[in-house]
Design a protein around this nucleic acid. Structure first.
Lengths: 390, 390
DNA sequence: TTGTAGGCGTTATCAC
DNA sequence: GTGATAACGCCTACAA
C-alpha cells in the first residue's frame, strides 16, 4: 500500500502518469504529486559523491600541469595561445565549473557582499535591495541577503554567519530591539568593511546612510499645522532606533516653532506592528479630547488609523488629519489618499553599494565618507489637505 | 585644499567634529561626511592581511594538536572534559571564528540554499522569501537570494554563480523571457536538488510548486460572467510562461462554458510592465466596441486599467468590470476595491523550503513529490461586483 | 612558457 | 584520548 509522503494518507493515492520512466502518483487529499524511491539504492550509507571535474582533470587530459591550466583559465599572460586554447576547449568539453569555495579559501575573499535587513513586510527593504543589487551585480559582486526578522538574537547569528562565510563587506539595517552593538564591533576589529543604513546607531564608527528623518518629520508636522490642525499626536517607533528618535525630535521642533503645546499623552512610541498600531490608534481616537491630527511613524500605522477613523465615522481630513512615512503603494489609493514622506529607497541601495565597493576595493585606507543623508519628499494627498476648507 | 570625495567640490567643505580621533569633514554641497586618509599608510601595495586566529593557533597556544582542537570544538566524543574546556576557553579568548569556507571545502556542502527570483517590484516574491526563510533558518540553513531581473542572461549567470558557490540546493522562479533550459539541466546532471516554483516550465523533471492558475483564472472569469459581464477581455502575461498559458486557458474555458464568444482581438499577451499595461489597457478601452470587463494577469495591470478608466470617466463596476491577480496591498484600497486572486505566497515559500530540505538531507533517493498545486482564493471587491445593479 | 611544491583552514582516517 | 597526515580544489612564488 502506498502512502502519501506529505500527509501519510493511504486511501487517496492515484496514479498520475510517468516521470523519468517511473510511475507518478498524486494524493487527492493534499495535492501532492510524487514518485517512489528506487528499491535498489546503491550501497546505502555510502554516498556516491559524484566527481566534479577539477583543474587537475583538465591538466591530465591534455598533459600539462595544473598551474598551466589555472593560468590559462584566468587569462594570465605568459602562456602560449595554443595551450590556452587547448585548455579552454577541454574545460568546456569536460563541463568544468570552477570551485568558488576553493578559490575563496586561497584568496581569502569571496566577491560577495552581505546584507542584513530586519523585515520584508514593507516594500522599503526590497527596494533598497533592488538598488544595491544593481550596483553590485554591475561590479561583478554577489549580494547575499539575510533577514533578522526584527530579532536581536537572529541579527547576531546572521552577522556570525556572514563572518564565517567571509563576505567581503556587510550592509546592515538594525532590528528595532538591537541595543547592544558588540556584534558590529567585531567587523571594525577585523577590518571588514561595514556600512549601516536606515536603521543606524551611534555606537559604532562606520559609514552610515540615512534619510533626513528630522527634516522630513519637521515638514510633515509643519504641513499639518499649516493646514490648520492644532492638536497633533505622534505615533512613533521604538526609541531604540535613531530613526524614531529623529522623527520625534522633528515633531517636537515643528510644534515648538509654531507655538503649539505638546500633550505628552499624545505621543506614543512603540514597536512596529500592525497590531500595536491598531491598539495605539484606538487609544488616541478614544481620548476624551482626541487629537485632530496624527503623524505616524510609517504608512502601515497611518493606514490602520485611517481605517479606524472610518469605522468610527470620523471624517478625514475634515475632523482628522493623517500623515504617514514611506509612501507604500497602497497609500496612494486608500480613502482620500495618504499624505506621506517618500523615501529614496533605490538611492539608499545604490549609495550603500557604491560605498561598500569603494571600501572593499581599496587596498589602503582612503578618504571615506562617514555619513550620507538622503533627501525625502513630502507627498501631499487628501488625508491632510483641508486648506480649502478653512 | 580638501576636496569632497564624492562631488570633488572644494569650496563647500566644512569641519564637522571628530571621529576616531580624526578630523571629520562635511561637504555642504552633496551632504557627504568624510574623513581623510592616513598619509602614513603602512607599506603601500603590500596589503597587511591581518591574521585570523585559526584552529592551529589555538592548538599551539595550549599545546595540543589541531585535530584535538577540531574535535573539542565540535563536541565530538572521545575527548577529556579538561582539554575540551581548555580549548573552548582559548577559542573564545582568542576570538576564534571558524572559517566556513574551509569547512565547506572539505565537506563539500555549504548548508546554504539558493533562491533566484525574477523581480522584487511586487510583494509576491518578498513574501515567498519570508516563508522560505523561516523554514530554512529553523533548519539551520542559510538562504542566499539572487535576482535575475527578468533577464535570461542574468538568470544563467546567477545559476552559474550558485553552482560555483556550491549551494546545496536551488529554488528558482524563471524570468519571463527564459525559453532555454540548459542551465537548469546542469543541476539535474550534477545531482543538485532543484525546485521550480511559480514560474515553472515543463522542460525539466524536478519538483514544482505552483498555484492552480487554471482554476483561479476560470473562477475569476466566471465570477465576471455571473455578474452580468458579456464581452470580457484578457490582458495576459507573456506566453513563454506556463503561468500565463494556464491563465489564458482558464479564461477560455470559462467563456466557453458559459457560451460567450471570444473575440481574439480582446486577448492580449504581453510582458509584465507598468508601461505595457498602460498601452494595452488604452488599446482595449479605446476599441470601437470596447469590452465591458477585463481580466488582467496581475494587479499592477489591473490597477493601471482602473486608473485609465477613471481618467476616461468610465464607471467601475457599472460600465467596466476589472479583476486582477495577486492581491497586492494597494488592491484593497484603490477605487471601489479591486477584485483579485489571492495567492498563498507564504505557503509557497514554506513548501518549497520544506521540499528542498527533504531532498538535500536525504542520502539516498526518496519518495519525492513532483508537483504541488497550492490553492488560491478569489477576493471579491467593488471593481467587479454589480450583481445588485442587475 | 611551463612545472614543482607549498599553502589556504578544516575534517577524517589512521595509528599510537 | 590524542596526534600525524592526507585530503578538499585552487593559486602562486620560485625553479627550470
Amino acid at each position: 500500500m502506498i502512502s502519501c509522503p506529505k500527509c501519510s494518507e493511504v486511501g487517496s493515492i492515484m496514479k498520475a502518469g510517468y516521470v523519468r520512466n517511473k510511475q507518478r502518483y498524486v494524493c487527492k487529499d493534499c495535492n501532492y504529486f510524487f514518485t517512489l524511491a528506487n528499491p535498489e539504492s546503491p550501497v546505502p550509507g555510502k554516498k556516491a559523491r559524484r566527481h566534479q571535474t577539477t583543474i587537475i582533470d583538465i591538466a591530465r587530459s591534455i598533459g600539462v600541469s595544473n598551474s598551466t591550466v589555472s593560468r590559462a583559465l584566468h587569462g594570465h599572460a605568459d602562456i602560449s595561445p595554443e595551450t590556452r586554447q587547448a585548455v579552454l576547449n577541454m574545460a568546456s568539453q569536460m563541463d568544468y565549473q570552477p570551485n568558488q569555495l576553493a578559490y575563496n579559501l586561497v584568496k581569502s575573499r569571496t566577491n560577495t557582499i552581505g546584507m542584513i535587513v530586519p523585515e520584508f513586510h514593507n516594500p522599503f527593504f526590497p527596494n533598497v535591495i533592488i538598488g544595491a543589487h544593481h550596483v553590485l551585480t554591475e561590479a561583478g559582486y554577489n549580494l547575499t541577503i539575510m533577514q533578522s526578522n526584527e530579532s536581536y538574537p537572529v541579527e547576531v547569528s546572521n552577522t556570525k554567519a556572514m563572518l564565517a562565510n567571509r563576505i567581503d563587506g556587510l550592509l546592515i539595517s538594525l532590528t528595532q530591539e538591537t541595543n547592544n552593538f558588540d556584534h558590529l564591533k567585531v567587523f571594525e576589529k577585523r577590518g571588514i568593511p561595514l556600512i549601516l543604513f536606515n536603521r543606524v546607531c551611534d555606537h559604532v564608527e562606520v559609514p552610515k546612510v540615512v534619510v533626513n528623518d528630522f527634516d522630513a518629520s519637521f515638514s510633515a508636522v509643519e504641513h499639518l499645522i499649516l493646514n490648520g490642525y492644532e492638536r497633533i499626536a505622534h505615533l512613533g517607533g521604538p526609541l531604540t532606533l535613531l530613526v524614531s528618535r529623529e522623527r520625534l525630535r522633528g515633531y517636537r521642533a515643528a510644534m515648538e516653532k509654531h507655538g503649539k503645546s505638546i500633550e505628552e499623552n499624545m505621543i506614543i512610541q512603540g514597536m512596529f506592528s500592525q497590531q500595536k498600531a491598531r491598539i495605539y490608534g484606538k487609544y488616541l481616537l478614544e481620548l476624551e479630547n482626541r487629537p485632530d491630527a496624527i503623524f505616524a511613524v510609517n504608512d502601515s500605522a497611518a493606514i490602520e488609523i485611517m481605517l479606524l477613523a472610518m469605522e468610527k465615522g470620523i471624517r478625514i481630513p475634515e475632523e482628522l488629519g493623517v500623515v504617514g512615512f514611506s509612501d507604500n503603494p497602497e497609500s496612494a489609493y486608500i480613502g482620500p489618499g495618504l499624505t506621506t514622506v517618500r523615501q529614496p529607497t533605490l538611492e539608499m541601495g545604490t549609495t550603500t553599494a557604491e560605498w561598500i565597493l569603494q571600501m572593499v576595493d581599496s587596498e589602503t585606507e582612503i578618504a571615506m565618507p562617514t555619513q550620507k543623508i538622503l533627501k525625502t519628499e513630502l507627498v501631499v494627498r487628501g488625508s491632510s489637505n483641508r486648506i480649502r476648507d478653512i
